[in-house]
């Protein structure tokens, strides 16, 4: 620091110094640089504002589209949740004991009170097989156990018709069980009629393949003849 300078104000002093130096700094392309900070700041501000404005506009547009999308997706979600709930209810209704037992009764199913067990390793049959007989104690025509939650029911008649159709296809080949059939040979189901489908035939073929064949004699299943 110079002791000769006016000590009243260093700031004043320095500005004074700058102004006194000024002529020495003339005539260089620096003029652009001198103007440029202002212009730069101004242009940055304008561009910035414009950019912000644009971004704002874009975001508003994006958000509002998003809001509509969210709303529509929410509605879809609600609808799907309701559908799921309804389908759930149908599944539980259809799988309830009441519905299954009613459907079984329509199909004429009876629980057999004389079970028979086959012991494969000992080649023995336990129990005396007998046809399942519908008695008051084994067959209950209709479910007697109420269920207010059961809203969906098996279409029993449609089920019956479907089973009848299945039987029509399957019974004919079974009648000719006595004729030995080689497992790899596709059976021609002549007595079942021309319309019998191939899958029914193949099912019967599998049932007659060696290994699962059981020869019936006197109503009691004998050991498989290997």
């Amino acid at each position: 620091m110079s002791a000769l300078t006016n000590p009243s104000s260093p700031r004043y002093n320095s500005s004074n110094a700058r102004s006194s130096r000024r002529p020495a700094l003339v005539a260089l392309p620096n003029t652009a640089r001198v103007r440029s900070p202002q212009l730069f700041i101004l242009s940055t501000l304008i561009i910035g504002f414009l950019a912000i404005g644009l971004a704002n506009l874009l975001m508003t547009v994006a958000t509002s589209t998003g809001v509509y999308q969210v709303a529509s997706l929410k509605a879809t979600k609600q609808k799907l949740a309701l559908d799921t709930q309804i389908l759930d209810q149908q599944v539980t209704s259809l799988s309830s004991n009441q519905n299954l037992s009613n459907a079984a009764a329509v199909l004429g199913m009876v629980s057999n009170s004389t079970p028979v067990f086959l012991n494969v390793s000992q080649q023995k049959v336990y129990g005396t097989p007998a046809a399942a007989v519908a008695t008051n104690y084994t067959r209950f025509g209709k479910s007697l156990v109420p269920n207010a939650a059961m809203t969906a029911k098996t279409q029993a008649n449609a089920l019956k018709a479907a089973v009848a159709e299945e039987n029509a296809m399957a019974t004919a080949p079974i009648k000719s069980v006595a004729i030995p059939v080689k497992s790899n040979q596709t059976r021609t189901v002549s007595d079942a009629g021309q319309n019998a489908k191939a899958n029914a035939a193949s099912r019967v073929t599998t049932a007659n393949s060696p290994g699962s064949q059981v020869v019936l004699s006197g109503g009691i299943p004998a050991a498989p003849n290997h």
């Binding site: 539980t92 309830s96 009441q98 156990v145 109420p146 269920n147 939650a149 059961m150």
Partner: peptide, 8 residues
């Protein structure tokens, strides 16, 4: 509250 099997 739902009881899917009713009176079971």
């Amino acid at each position: 509250r739902v009881y899917p099997n009713g009176a079971l």
